[in-house]
């Protein structure tokens, strides 16, 4: 299973867990599984069916280029990070990462 590092400010939605072991073939499946375990979690990362433009994903130390379709291996380490440029959405939930 892939290991997902939960962003600090989203840990309140995962009961304080810093990491989660999740099964999935790509980032989208990992997020969907996390959302099943922690309802509402996906809304902080996904907008209109895509990874939010303000968020980047790193799989095994490499910044992904395929968003939710970024492939994930059996033992991958996955981190969500702010995209370099940043910018914000007035959406009320996006004031935290």
């Amino acid at each position: 299973m892939a290991t997902v590092s939960i962003p600090s400010l989203l840990r309140k939605y995962t009961g304080g867990r810093e990491r989660a072991e999740v099964r999935g073939r790509n980032v989208g499946e990992l997020v969907a599984e996390l959302d099943r375990q922690f309802p509402g979690f996906a809304a902080h990362l996904i907008e209109a069916g895509e990874l939010k433009p303000s968020i980047a994903v790193s799989v095994d130390g490499e910044i992904g280029t395929a968003g939710l379709l970024e492939p994930v291996g059996e033992t991958s380490e996955v981190h969500f990070l702010p995209a370099i440029g940043g910018g914000a959405n007035p959406d009320r939930n996006s004031s935290r990462f």
Partner: peptide, 10 residues
């Protein structure tokens, strides 16, 4: 009124 990916910037 939503962010869109734009190269280096959102």
């Amino acid at each position: 009124n939503r962010e869109e990916a734009a190269g280096e910037l959102a």
